[in-house]
Nucleic acid binder design. Structure first.
Lengths: 185, 185
DNA sequence: ACCTGAACACCGTTCAAGT
DNA sequence: ACCTGAACACCGTTCAAGT
């Protein structure tokens, strides 16, 4: 038995994927969930709060598989993490833009999920430094640099600002690899 | 004598800076420009086209000072270019998000301005490579890596996804410098 | 060529009311 | 506790008409 709240988030996510945030109208969300156009107000403060719930669920789903990993196995390295990040963002561009966009709502749920996701990357960077694959220095700051490249490359590519043709053509994954190659040298 | 068209773009830019794209209503744009709420339709195809004009003017203004530079002086180096990029984006976040967001309208004006701005960076990267400050390789691809860091760092910072406190704290400018330091080593 | 005023369809949000 | 239907204010866009 899936709750109305979950069905509302499902519907909002589907509409978001299809047509961006503008396509997420409360009327259509309600219709897809089988309720009236203002039933969402009984579960969320408004449209913004509904979208924040979508973003929070997305972050949680990204992080959960890594949390479940048994402690005996080390997690994936930072390069692999960024490859997954790029792959997810490319596949679900609207979710990517929403999740990493600015939330005017100061949702605790979102803040917690984001900081948790960041700590996974920092841990991977620390393992890379210990193995000599990454340069020394503050691991949080190096993680920020790595995330900035992945995030920026994806955002530029999604918006058509990466040269899409000719010798200069590089995919976000290529640019992430370029960075790690430079860091390893 | 400033044209109605320019006054409309001015008004739209002001509203954009104050409250983001949602605050740019054609009614308020018209009111600020001293015309009716649908006079903009005589100059632009619609709201989207008006916002594209704002973005195009912004790109043009960024690029113009560099084009006027006499050929005898070499342009600023890539690091300095990215510092200016970060400074502009931090000062006018709404313009940054609009200009580097996705334009559904395939505006030629925008595409030209964007590719022109990119070529300025590529030229700076080539000079850096010639001077031995940057590693060898395809300059377009290296320029894309550098732009990805600056763009990603600014976007993460604007959206509050860069750790704002503690030892991991790094500003977009810091991250740009980190990349250039790594590339120079 | 440029502009206006009325009108239409749509949306977020509120409210009174129902079970 | 959860939901509905009507209503309100607002917005993008279109249209007929004016100079």
């Amino acid at each position: 038995m899936v709750s109305t709240r979950d069905r509302l988030i499902d519907a909002a996510t589907r509409l978001l994927d299809q047509g961006g945030p503008a396509a997420v109208t409360l009327r259509e969300v309600g219709r897809l969930a089988g309720v009236s156009h203002n039933a969402p107000y009984k579960h969320f403060a408004g449209k913004q709060d509904l979208l924040a719930a979508v973003a929070a669920r997305e972050l949680f789903r990204q992080e959960r598989p890594r949390r479940r990993r048994p402690d005996s196995k080390p997690g994936p390295d930072a390069r692999q993490l960024m490859h997954e990040y790029v792959r997810w963002a490319t596949r679900y561009p609207a979710r990517f833009k929403l999740t990493f966009g600015s939330w005017s709502t100061g949702s605790d749920e979102l803040a917690d999920a984001a900081s948790s996701a960041r700590s996974v990357l920092v841990a991977a960077v620390e393992r890379g430094q210990a193995a000599g694959d990454l340069p020394p220095g503050d691991p949080e700051r190096l993680a920020a640099l790595i995330l900035a490249v992945a995030h920026g490359a994806v955002d530029l590519a999604l918006n058509g600002h990466l040269s899409r043709t000719g010798k200069g053509h590089a995919s976000p994954k290529d640019l992430v690899d370029d960075l790690f190659d430079q860091l390893g040298a």
